[in-house]
């Protein structure tokens, strides 16, 4: 079973990279850009046929290693 995990910085955490990218896009002439935040994306394949169990495994991976819960949020999607 295949999943995607998107990791983003929490709302209150400063994202200097996102800010620089946004400024560059503005400088490139894109004027209607309101906000931009940079994140991380993982594609994960799990050897499991039961959806609930597979999601549980991916969730565990996120909490234990992939995500720093102090500064990041994450979303798991089945793909």
């Amino acid at each position: 079973m295949k999943f995607s995990v998107t990791v983003t910085l929490k709302k209150d955490v400063l994202d200097p990279q996102g800010k620089v990218i946004k400024n560059t896009l503005n400088d490139m002439g894109i004027k209607n850009l309101n906000n931009l935040r940079q994140g991380k994306y993982f594609e994960i394949e799990v050897n499991e046929t039961n959806l609930t169990l597979a999601e549980k495994t991916v969730n565990e991976m996120c909490k234990k290693l992939l995500v720093n819960l102090i500064i990041e949020d994450y979303k798991i999607n089945k793909i």
Partner: peptide, 9 residues
């Protein structure tokens, strides 16, 4: 806590 990227990148 954690250590973020330097403010000036």
């Amino acid at each position: 806590g954690t250590l973020l990227r330097n403010k000036n990148l």
